[in-house]
């Protein structure tokens, strides 16, 4: 093979690397219900209370556990923050008819090129008075 062949191979390798768009990832939101039965959805913009280090004073029932997971290249990890993620979690909590989020746990791992960000919370519904 000639120098021409080497050039073609070089361009091919570059195109493969660039086309693979390193670090592109999709966020994943999963919900695991803890109680049986259907949930009455609320509008996505409903009001969800957040209890970070405390529990609601009202009586409540657990609706389920919501898990937000995202993993991306460290050059694009600017959005891996709780304040950025929280509106998405709240919107999901509305969909399953929740009133509040409790037991919020944030897990963050950064190593080499990638950053992993995970938020787990329990969605609760207040018991009617």
């Amino acid at each position: 093979m000639s120098t021409r062949g080497a050039q073609v191979l070089f361009l091919f390798l570059c195109s493969v690397l660039i086309a693979s768009r390193p670090g592109s990832a999709k966020e994943k939101i999963t919900f695991t219900p803890t109680e049986a039965g259907r949930h009455v959805a609320k509008p996505e913009s409903c009001d969800i209370q957040v209890f970070k280090d405390s529990k609601p004073e009202q009586t409540y029932v657990d609706v389920g556990i919501i898990n937000y997971h995202d993993e991306r290249h460290r050059a694009k990890d600017g959005t891996l923050k709780l304040e950025v993620v929280m509106p998405k979690i709240k919107a999901s909590a509305c969909k399953v008819g929740g009133d509040a989020l409790i037991d919020i746990r944030v897990t963050e791992v950064r190593r080499l090129e990638f950053a992993m960000f995970n938020v787990r919370a329990t969605i609760v519904r207040f018991a009617p008075n």
Binding site: L17, S20, R21, P22, G23, S24, A25, E71, R72, H73, R111, L112, E113, F114
Partner: peptide, 9 residues
């Protein structure tokens, strides 16, 4: 996840 050097996952 595909990275520029080592990737992950």
């Amino acid at each position: 996840h595909v990275g520029a050097f080592v990737g992950s996952g």
